[in-house]
């Protein structure tokens, strides 16, 4: 029987750092399998909204997962249901790849005297490492990985957390194109499993559209557009970003076509564009 609640819902949700909220009166629902991209210029409140949902910032309004108020959950319960992947940053301590992915099981550890990952936790971590092609690297210290590899390990850790909803805060920043594309593909595969959804902030509009089926366009903390990616008016993007977004996209496409034409004509690139 289908659930009477949406998988995730926020209603009249506001949050911020001080007394005045940065994010104001946002409402949306997510169904299983849905991928929502938060779009908007710098400072419009995308990351603040993610932090508010995660419970890092104080917030007002309703926030529910499967009908349960998220604020009534303990922080560990939240960790079992929500996970967050942020942009890549340096790590100070040299955990191995396996140890790092196993940390994703922390919210699931039983609160015994000296709780540590059990066989099931190891099986889940191993499965994620294999799925993301990291099994060979399992004993390598994460301090010796490239940025792209490290972000992939952190993605495996996020998956090992087996959350219902993943929040992504510019996870593709500083990554090579290959890793950006792989990241989005892995996320799409993950949300393809039953009972999972994701909300992501991506700076790159192409990447955001490639990831999302739904868009929340924000400006100054408020909703400008909420709906299917295909229904987003390009003019709305231009208004919010303050540049001719369709014009920019056209030029970008033209540059790309020139590049590919030249490649077709000569078989290889003569000079960089």
């Amino acid at each position: 029987m289908p659930s009477e609640h949406p998988m995730f819902r926020i209603d009249s949700f506001s949050c911020g750092y001080g007394k005045a909220p940065v994010v104001k009166d946002i409402s949306f629902t997510l169904s299983p399998g849905q991928r929502l991209a938060l779009l908007g210029p710098n400072g419009c409140g995308k990351t603040t909204l993610l932090r508010g949902i995660m419970g890092i910032l104080s917030s007002s309004g309703n926030i529910e997962l499967e009908g349960q108020n998220l604020r009534t959950m303990t922080i560990r319960e939240r960790g079992r249901n929500l996970a967050m992947l942020t942009q890549m940053h340096s790590v100070s301590f040299s955990y191995t790849v396996m140890e790092t992915v196993l940390l994703g099981r922390y919210p699931h550890l039983e609160s015994r005297l000296f709780s540590s990952p059990d066989a099931e936790d190891r099986r889940i971590a191993e499965e994620q490492l294999k799925k993301l092609g990291l099994w060979q690297e399992r004993d390598k210290p994460i301090t010796e990985l490239s940025g792209g590899q490290l972000q992939r390990v952190l993605l495996a850790r996020t998956f090992a957390q087996t959350p219902r909803l993943i929040l992504l805060d510019e996870p593709a920043n500083h990554l090579d194109l290959k890793y950006q594309v792989e990241l989005v593909e892995d996320l799409k595969k993950w949300t393809g499993e039953p009972g999972r959804a994701a909300i992501g902030v991506f700076h790159d509009l192409d990447l955001a559209f490639s990831f999302a089926d739904t868009v929340l366009l924000m400006d100054q903390g408020k909703t400008v557009f909420l709906g299917k990616t295909a229904d987003l008016e390009p003019e709305a993007l231009s208004r919010v970003f303050g540049i001719d977004v369709p014009g920019y996209m056209r030029k970008s496409r033209l540059r790309w076509e020139t590049l590919t034409n030249r490649e077709d004509q000569h078989g290889n690139l003569q000079k960089p564009l």
Partner: peptide, 14 residues
């Protein structure tokens, strides 16, 4: 172990 990854990631892991 979790805390060595910084506040935001630690919060995300419960």
């Amino acid at each position: 172990d979790v805390m060595t990854f910084g506040d935001e990631q630690a919060q995300g892991m419960g």
